[in-house]
Design a binder for these strands. Structure first.
Length: 722
DNA sequence: TTAGGGTTAG
């Protein structure tokens, strides 16, 4: 079986990044030979543990796409743009065909992908003495019944003539998109003046607020049909409307259309589109657009910078965040509150609590007052990092400075209490919230409290709180139930667990993958017996396929081919975030039942499907095994597999590094709690020569010499042949 | 503040 894992590792490390031929025009253009791209996108696949390795995905198996559905490729999306559309404007066509000359010959214009001059809004807001009457009228229209008849009756009472200015004022004052549309159509039929772009733009803004993309697009087609000019405001409104409706392909489509008509985006439209790609996680495309804009002389503003920062945060990409900070420095830009908030959040997601703390201190020093979002980000970071002292210092600072709190911040503080096991602080805040007029505890607050009690094993308090939640009319949701189930499972109170589960089902709670994961982990606490069957019955209700799969794993005659096929089906049907926990639990279940071979097969499958990125990494001097995201059973399986591979390497007399390292983590993360201890006993069981590092907790080390001696002691034939 | 873009919760 050792060979299976080394096969999987090979799959990870032999693939080169995708070639330029598949990239859209702005990536393949020779215009783009810029530092960022060199640094980030030509990194060849390496097995080192540097952050670049996360950008070198393993070669997926043939059915990978089924399990990880992707958005349509950008090159497909932008094919028309690259091959035809841009060529339609002579200047741009020249840029694409003769790019070099634009750089070497300063007399030629600089390549441009955006208009540096932002579109001006019209300055026609003259003093209108009828403003009050018209706004009052708009309010009445908003309040009238949502039917055409009621609207037509109400419109009779328009206090002044529906002149261009008066109509525009009313249109702009309406809040409900239905009314905006009715009023828009009405003024159109009145034909008192020609409909200009601004009327469409105002109407679209209202439709965007109501997330009505189809109607927005209909208006745009109406403009095209009637020969009314679409300007940058129109396009950016359409694009952001599509974005808000999660119709990213539509956003790209309208951006393409804009170039097609020869209109150049200004910085607002441009950063809007960059955000579209950022939200799709298309980092390369974003950076290409960004760098091309920069090459055109664009000085990005706070909004564009925040878009980049958020994108790198979502990707957990610290190098990217550094790039954003460097960009700001070179632009001479001082971050504003939103940029600080975005970067704090990003640093949290990239796992850099210390840098987040420094950035927060810098922001305070510069006199920027944090808001609820700033504090929420920081509280979350300190909680997840288990930085108790920093968390409590910050909380104290919040109190003494009288910084404003909102419901999300309070709930984040409660979650932090759960992370840090601060029962009394949580109870105090929870009681304050109950007494507050502004925000009462909601299902998030109850869930955080259940988590606090759960993490401390305070089962009775958790049960009592759950009763209170059910009685006070707070929505009993799947997350709260899952927290309580975890707590009851750990306490092995299975009958209570069954009761809670049934109650939740009666209340209409829909089990999700996270809940199934919890049930499965509880199954792995027990080797067999009545309790397991009780939990299996619940899992059967929540996810029958999973129970069938567990039974299949337990049957000796099941072939590896069947396991592979069924595993694929299970993972395909599972939410991305729950796939690794599922695989971990399944491995644990197998090991508890002494099905070690099965456990290895599952680990192999999990590795092939990319559930354990960074499990193995190699440099010439050091081979590492990182089991921090694995359960105890999965970590033990991975360790056995690793040692098997190493033995094989010794057998084949291939080169070995000086040092072998296994990281379990030191127990700051919930999953890692106990992992180091469990790992140590596994090492002892195998008599493997790993010792805990004295400098770094949760790291185990072994030298080449020790490993070779150990392997030879286990298989004397190795010693004879060497 | 009155036609367009960015930031908070399992």
């Amino acid at each position: 079986m050792a060979a299976t894992l080394s096969r999987a590792v090979d799959v990870h490390c032999t693939l080169q990044p995708t070639s330029d031929s598949n990239r859209p025009f702005f990536l393949t253009s020779p215009l783009l030979r810029l530092p960022y791209r060199r640094r980030f996108f030509t990194t060849s696949c390496s097995s080192s543990s540097s952050s670049s390795s996360s950008r070198s995905p393993p070669k997926p198996p043939p059915d990978y796409e089924d399990i990880h559905p992707r958005n349509p490729s950008l090159s497909d999306q932008l094919k028309s743009l690259s091959t035809t559309l841009l060529n339609q404007t002579p200047q741009q066509a020249q840029l694409l065909t003769k790019p070099k000359s634009t750089w070497v010959n300063p007399t030629r214009p600089k390549p441009s992908v955006l208009n540096l001059q932002r579109q001006k809004k019209s300055q026609q807001h003259l003093y209108n003495p009828q403003v009050r009457d018209l706004k009052h009228f708009a309010r009445k229209l908003d309040e009238c019944e949502n039917s055409e008849a009621a609207f037509m009756a109400a419109i009779e009472e328009m206090p002044h003539l529906p002149s261009r200015e008066n109509s525009l004022l009313v249109l702009n004052s309406l809040r409900q998109w239905q009314k905006t549309l009715l009023f828009f159509n009405w003024i159109k039929t009145q034909k008192l003046f020609p409909m200009e772009t601004i009327f469409y733009n105002v109407a679209m803004k209202s439709l965007r607020f109501g997330r009505q993309f189809q109607l927005t697009e209909d208006l745009a087609y109406d403009m095209i049909d009637n020969g009314i000019e679409l300007d940058n405001i129109t396009y950016s409104t359409i694009i952001t409307c599509a974005k808000r409706c999660n119709l990213f392909d539509k956003a790209v489509e309208w951006f393409e259309r804009m170039y097609k008509t020869g209109l150049m985006p200004d910085e607002v439209t441009y950063s809007g589109v960059i955000d579209v790609y950022a939200q799709l996680g298309k980092v390369e495309e974003v950076m290409s657009l960004y760098e091309r804009g920069r090459a055109s002389g664009w000085a990005p503003d706070h909004i564009a910078i925040a878009v980049l920062g958020k994108m790198f945060g979502e990707a957990g990409d610290y190098d990217g965040i550094r790039y954003v900070l460097d960009e700001m420095k070179s632009l001479g830009m001082q971050p504003n509150l939103v940029v600080y908030n975005t970067l704090l959040e990003a640093l949290g997601k990239a796992g850099k609590p210390g840098l987040a703390r420094s950035l927060f201190l810098e922001m305070i020093e510069l006199g920027v007052t944090p808001n609820e979002k700033t504090l929420t980000a920081l509280v979350k970071i300190y909680g997840k990092a288990r930085w108790g002292r920093d968390a409590l210092d910050l909380w104290e600072r919040m109190r003494s400075n009288g910084w404003k709190m909102d419901c999300i911040l309070c709930n984040t503080l409660l979650s932090m209490c759960a992370d840090l096991g601060l029962e009394e602080d949580a109870e105090r805040l929870f009681d304050d919230m109950k007494g507050s007029m502004t925000f009462k505890p909601n299902s998030w607050s109850y869930t955080a409290m259940l988590n606090t009690y759960g993490s401390l094993g305070n089962v009775d308090k958790a049960m009592k709180l759950f009763d209170e939640m059910s009685e006070t009319g707070v929505e009993v949701n799947v997350m709260a139930v899952t927290c309580l189930i975890q707590c009851l499972g750990r306490a092995k109170r299975i009958d209570d667990l069954v009761r809670v589960f049934k109650f939740a089902m009666e209340r209409g709670v829909q089990p999700d993958d996270r809940m199934c994961g919890s049930l499965m982990s509880i199954i792995s606490y027990f080797e067999d017996g009545k309790d397991v069957n009780k939990v299996l019955a619940l899992l059967q209700h929540a996810n029958p396929e999973l129970v069938s799969f567990i039974k299949l794993l337990e049957e000796e005659k099941t072939s590896f081919e069947t396991i592979k096929e069924e595993f694929r089906g299970i993972m395909r049907a599972t939410e991305v975030d729950a796939r690794r926990p599922f695989c971990n639990c399944l491995i644990d279940v197998c090991r508890d039942r002494n099905l070690h071979e099965r456990a290895h097969e599952l680990l192999y499958m999990g590795t092939v499907y990319g559930l354990y990125p960074g499990l193995h990494s190699k440099t010439p001097d050091e081979w590492r095994l990182n089991v921090r995201s694995l359960s105890v059973g999965a970590a033990n399986t991975a360790f056995e597999e690793w040692m098997g591979t190493v033995t094989k390497v010794i057998e084949q007399k291939e080169e070995l590094p000086k040092l072998f390292t296994a990281s379990t983590g030191a127990g700051t993360h919930k999953l890692a709690q106990g992992l180091a201890g469990a790992f140590e006993s596994q090492v002892k069981k195998l008599a493997a020569p790993f010792r805990q590092s004295e400098e770094k907790a949760g790291v185990f080390l072994a030298t080449r010499e020790d490993i070779v001696a150990w392997a030879q002691s286990k298989a004397p034939s190795l010693a004879i042949t060497s």
